[in-house]
Structure formats: C-alpha cells, structure tokens
Design a binder for these strands. Sequence first.
DNA 1: GTGAAAGCGCTAACAG
DNA 2: CTGTTAGCGCTTTCAC
Lengths: 346, 346
Amino acid sequence: MKEIAQRIGVSVSTVSLVLNGRDEGRVKTGVAAEVRRTAKELGYKSNPLARSLRTGKTRILGFVSEEVATTPYAGGIILGAQDAASRLGYMLLTVNTDGRANEDDEIATLKRYGVDGFMYAKMSNRYVDVPAALGDYPLVLVDAIDRAGRIPSIEPDEFRIAYDATMRLVNAECERIAYIGCSASMVAQDGRLAGYRRALEDAGRTFDESLVANVLNNGPALRAVEELFDRRSPDGFFCFNDARAWYVYECAARRGLEIGRDISVVGVDNHRIFAETLEPQLTTVELPHYEMGYWAACKLVSLIEKRDPSGFEVPDTTAPLPPFDGANPAKVHCTLIEKESVRARR
Amino acid sequence: MKEIAQRIGVSVSTVSLVLNGRDEGRVKTGVAAEVRRTAKELGYKSNPLARSLRTGKTRILGFVSEEVATTPYAGGIILGAQDAASRLGYMLLTVNTDGRANEDDEIATLKRYGVDGFMYAKMSNRYVDVPAALGDYPLVLVDAIDRAGRIPSIEPDEFRIAYDATMRLVNAECERIAYIGCSASMVAQDGRLAGYRRALEDAGRTFDESLVANVLNNGPALRAVEELFDRRSPDGFFCFNDARAWYVYECAARRGLEIGRDISVVGVDNHRIFAETLEPQLTTVELPHYEMGYWAACKLVSLIEKRDPSGFEVPDTTAPLPPFDGANPAKVHCTLIEKESVRARR
DNA sequence: GTGAAAGCGCTAACAG
DNA sequence: CTGTTAGCGCTTTCAC
C-alpha cells in the first residue's frame, strides 16, 4: 500500500479507502481509478493478518466437528462449507475433537486465531448441548439440533427422504414394501420410519409392522433380513442406508430373485461406494452433506455480517439449498437418483 | 502483555522475553517466575495474529488437495495432519481444488494468509507435477510422488501390502491364490501385483497369470470374478480393495462356498464400511491415511523450522510411522487386521 | 538484566 | 476530498 501511495503521490489512507470500496463520494473517481490500476499493476494483495489485527475481524470461520475422518459424511459437509466460505471471501479453519476431551481446547485455539464465528457439526447423534465456550460467538449447527432450539441449524429432511423413497416403490407397483431400518436409536431412524409410514397411508395402504426390520450389521443383520424375506416375501425395500441395502442384495442373490425385476430396492446413499459396487446399481437418495455445509457457512456469514443471506450465490447441487427464512432447523429436501434397482416408473 | 507488565512493574519486552522462553540468562529468574505466574493468573493467551505480523511466521500449514470430499481417503490424511500439527503448535488451513481450475487461486489465498509451508495431496493419481506456485515454500507431498523425485513425499508400501496379504493366504494353506486387481492403471495396482507375485515366488510357487483378474466395478467386474471362479476354483483371494472383495463374497454365496472355510479372502480396506458390513468380516490391510498425514505434517514442520523431526512425539497408530531418515518417498508399512474371512493361521 | 522505541501492514478518527 | 496520526499486540534491536 505504501508503494502504491508513493507511486501516485497520495497517502496510504486514500489507498486503503479505495481498495476497500469505501471511496464513494470521498475520493475523486480519477484518483480512485488510478489507485486501482496501480494496485493491479503491482499485483497488490492485501495482508489479511494486518487487517485483522486492526479490525478484529479475520474472515475465518471455525469448523468444529468430532471424528472428521471416521465417518464418510464429514468430507462433504466440509467441502460445501469451504466452497461457500471461499465464495464469500472467508477461509475455513477446521478442527476435530475426539469426543469431549479436547473440545474446549480446540475451541480456545480457534478463538485465539480470531475466528469470526463457528460451525459445530456432530455426525449423526443429533441433539446436542452446545459447548458453553461457543456461547458468545455467531454459531450454526450442522446435522445437529440444540435442545433449546435457539441456534440456527440444518439437517436433512429425514421424513421426506423416506416418503419419497417409499412413494417411488409404490409407483413401481410394489405390493409389499419393507423397511430395513436401523435398530440404534437416532433422529434419522425415527424420521424415516414416519415418512415410510405416511407414504404407505397416503397410498391407501395400512402400515404393517411385520414388514419392518430394524437391524445393525453383519451376520445378525443378514439373518434378520433373510427372515423377513422368508416370512413376508416383500417385493419392495426401502433401506436405511446402502450398507443395509447390501443385505437385501445378498438375500436376493441366494434366492435367485432378480433386483429391478422381481424386487425393487431404494436406499439412502451414505457410503457412496455401494452404489458403484452393487449390481444392479442402487437407486438412492443422496444425503445432502455438501448442501448442509454450504448452507451453514452462508448462514454463519450472514450472522457475522448481520446481512441478509438470500442474495448469496447458490451452488449447482443435486438437492436444492433450503431458504434462509428463519425456519429452524432448516431441512434439506434430498434428491432421488434413479438406477436399475427399481422397476421403471409407470 | 501490557497488563502483566504493569502489574509487576516491568516492561512488555521483558514479558515477551519470558513468555517466549528466551529469558535464559537475560531475565532474573525471580522476575521470570513472577511473569509466568501472573500470565497464568490472568489467563493470558498470546495473539497469534499480532505475533505473525511481526515475525512473518504464522504457524499455519496449508493443506492443498483435490476432491477432499469425494474420496473416503482424504479424511484420514487430514485428521492425521491435523493431529500432528496440533501437537506441534500449528494449525491446518485446508483448501480443496477441483482439478486444475482454481488450484493456483487457492494456493494464492493460502499464501496471503501467510502459511509457513504446504502439504500437497493428490488422491490416487500419484505421479504429479508440483504447481509452480509452491516452488518457493517448504513442501511435502502426500500419497503422491513428484516426477523429479526431489520433494519429500510419503505413500503406502504397496508392495508389502500385497506381499503380506498374499503370504497370509499362503500360511493359511491356500492352494490357488487369486488376485482381484484393478484394471485402471495406477501405481498401487503395479506395486500390489508385484508384491503378490513375489510372495508366491518366495513361497516356492509359480506366478500364474490365469489367477489374476483385473476389474473395474458393477456387472462386468462381477462377471469377470464369476468366470475366474469357474475356470480356476481359487481357494484364496487377495483383493485390491474391499469393493472388489465384495464380488468374491457374492460369487461365493451363489456357489454355496463358505468364506473362512472353503475359501479365504484378504482385501485392502479402502472404504471401511465393507469390513463392517460383510459377513464373515473381511480380513483387511488398513491403508495408512492417518499415518501419512501425521508424518507429512511432522516432516513439513521440520522443514520449516530446520529442525530434526526424529524427536517428535509419535501417535499411537496401527501402522508404525516411518522414520524421517531422508528416504524418498517414505513408505508406510501397513498392518493386517485379522477377521474371520481367512482360515486360522497354522 | 531491563526498558524504550521502532515497526510488521493495515484501518479509522479527525483535521484540514 | 485527502493527509496526518494513532494504534491493533507483539517482537526485536539497541542503549542503558
């Protein structure tokens, strides 16, 4: 800045004004133009550190999450958050906490680096008590809801995931539509069971408990699905995730049933790789990790800058970004990706 | 700092000296102790921004990678790098680049934030041309090797992965050990095929091309494995990854063969979830993503501080961290995790 | 041993 | 409209 100022014989303050777009009606347009020109000429890049030191704002967002790596989900969320941050001129500083132990430490570190606000993501266990350390900062929760319901948060629309998937099977004229759920207690499980049930009712059918198998994994899961096959011979399956869809594929193979013809399967695509591996490929509902991350970062910036986020640039994603209308939690409506595991739609 | 100084009637310079551990023989030990005490009392935390502005060092490491989220691998690497950075008093600033487009932009942004060095990770396509923009910074490559061979880098020991897995099958007295590889050209594929071959030779067997099936995914992959079953009836399988192991499980199910008794299977665990889903659980070699990230961050810090990294604290990981002895690329020797898919070791 | 002073690059209040 | 000045929190000579 000093150099620019010297070159064209103005003061650094003027340069600062111009380069920050605060020159409207304060700096002669001629001078302003010249400043901008020389800035570009010299390849001037502002030093965010120095600026932050002065302004107290760093344009850095803290992203706190546990087990960033151990779940396949996290990556997508971070990616989305990063993209949004980048477009809005922010950076993302990510820390991961192993359970409770170092959480407060990590948050303290982020604070020392001067982050302007926090995103707090807990993978899958969704009702959280927000750490007190975050209380006095702008904050958005991702795939988590605080018990008090006061903090902006975003989550997948679990109900509609199941509703759409089940309706897809109804439309494929499946007679006995099973739900392969999760026997661990989770928000996702509850929402999806409800969506499954409602879709059946809307289709004029009655919910039948004996078509539901809530399972975990490995042998016991496989046997439970086997048992469901034998007992009820379902011809349609909505699966809690792709891992559970695999049990259906396995049972079908053993019975000589052809998927996409004899039985139809829709799953939620948690792990990606399954959809690529299974034959025939699995019709899935994509979980909106990227979208949640993107939304959360936008929301957080709007909080920090006290600015209306509805004007923010929106990415081109499979699931539409939910509106920033204050509804809390915001729910992302996910997209169903057609593959060959379901009979052609009527 | 000002406050501390005032409280005990010294100058900020003295406080700075003490708090940075540069007081040896320069500040009276009594004063030093008092400074430290009041610092703790006041809960003083240094402001990294201000320090960086002065020193030109930020203690921030830039982590550049493409498609951070689209592969399941990235998370582990970042986690490892983050842990190491955290222990060494650094932060990680992560950016992801979509192919070539914004790579230079993202790197420029990191530079503006004053990162002290870079880690550059490319998932799976491993021979890279390092972006010129990184040329003048401390740099470490992760799971990638530069063509010139001059930049420190780390990768899994692909050869030994395959060697150990194959040897495990030899020890289980498998007669016809097949390799289900990857038909796309990759460093990993070459290394593993070589390791498989060598293990067989060391066991006094001859490599037999007709026991190798290089496949991609879905139907074609499944049919290729079917064909291998029918043609050669292998009783041992080393699989390029867990997705490919699934084709073996599928074929076995269709033939009524029991895994862990009639046939034995070892796979590389790329996607984690498979090992949890398959029954019986898959014996895997874990890819050392965490370890690679950890090693790379340590190496980078040692470069930045021109300091010997061998004293760095080492994490408790399944695979041992390779030495910092200058061998390039460093190779991580991975660990085989026993599950039920292989007959008990003799 | 310790303190005064300069300065990292930038912004903001105020004076002109 | 523009320049002067002060200062963000810290480190680092250099003089005492």
